[in-house]
């Protein structure tokens, strides 16, 4: 009996130790909590539209107004060309994919601070929350993408020129890359903000500045021969936005090397994000 007890005692379900392995993401556990992941996505979606009349339609308002603003400032005042694409679908396509990135980044970067109440009381794999944010923002992206499609169809009839080809297959990959980028950078920032809130303040205008360093309101081709073109080219978000337009409108060339560079950057961001997140999630309740 004693022997049996001893043998059983070696089979521990969990061992709580001060510091985990450097990269102990416990994806198996995240998978076990997949129902929770899905329920969080559902919660975000349902709770957002309770007691609103227009509901998801609200997501149309922001891209429409931003597009009009860009049309006025970049199109009319600054006279920046739009790569042979009609101005409105040009701006709107940039805004749609950019919005998805910035929503993912902003929401995941608040993971620890915003959920301290739940995290302080019950354990579940913390990674579930940022993953669910990225997923629930896909719904918002989908709605804005539908708006973009209808605008493109309208312009298609107007000009008699439709572009619908194999390049559309790139779109899911590009969205996935944006999700990875938002998630990677977001969890890095969320880990840093648990102790020092300075980063929250920084993030607000960093996202705004980053948008101007990304070809959202202008095409990359416009920067040719300009001394600062390299800055925008080194921005790992640029190839994704440019490729998104290539996929949608079929103009320009596909920058495969640029996309590979972005992909590499995303992997590095995700890796460091996971590393930091994993370290911080264990003790953040003491400092948050």
């Amino acid at each position: 009996m004693q022997e049996q007890d001893n043998r059983m005692e070696e089979n521990w379900d969990q061992v709580i130790v001060p510091k985990g392995k450097l990269l102990d993401l416990n994806l198996k556990e995240v998978w076990r909590y997949r129902d929770l992941l899905w329920l969080f996505v559902k919660r975000d979606f349902v709770a957002q539209y309770k007691q609103t009349i227009l509901g998801p339609v609200w997501h149309f308002i922001q891209p429409i107004f931003t597009t009009l603003m860009f049309l006025f400032i970049f199109g009319k005042i600054a006279n920046i060309p739009t790569d042979g694409i009609a101005a409105i679908p040009f701006y709107m396509s940039g805004i749609t994919i950019w919005n998805y990135f910035s929503a993912c980044l902003t929401a995941t970067s608040a993971t620890f601070v915003a959920n301290a109440g739940i995290f302080g009381k019950v354990y579940f794999p913390r990674l579930v929350l940022p993953l669910s944010t990225v997923m629930s923002n896909i719904i918002k992206f989908g709605i804005q993408f539908l708006l973009l499609l209808s605008v493109m169809i309208y312009y298609g009839f107007k000009t008699g020129h439709f572009h619908f080809g194999i390049s559309w297959l790139l779109i899911p990959l590009l969205v996935l890359m944006m999700a990875g980028m938002g998630l990677g950078l977001g969890i890095i920032i969320s880990s840093l903000t648990t102790k020092y809130r300075d980063f929250t303040v920084l993030l607000g205008f960093a996202v705004q500045l980053l948008m101007y360093a990304t070809p959202v309101a202008y095409p990359l081709s416009f920067l040719k021969d300009k001394s600062y073109a390299a800055w925008v080219a080194w921005n790992p978000l640029s190839p994704i936005v440019e490729s998104f337009r290539y996929a949608l409108f079929g103009t320009g060339t596909l920058d495969v090397a640029g996309l590979l560079y972005s992909g590499g950057f995303i992997l590095v961001a995700l890796f460091f994000g996971a590393l930091l997140f994993n370290k911080v999630e264990r003790t953040f309740m003491d400092t948050v």
Partner: peptide
């Protein structure tokens, strides 16, 4: 309940842990 980690030492546990201090969480 794994909401924070110890500074030193370890705890070995067999089975699922739940605590009633979580009533209504979330």
């Amino acid at each position: 309940s794994r909401t924070t980690t110890p500074t030193t030492g370890q705890i070995k546990i067999k089975g699922r842990v739940a605590s009633l201090l979580e009533v209504g969480t979330g």
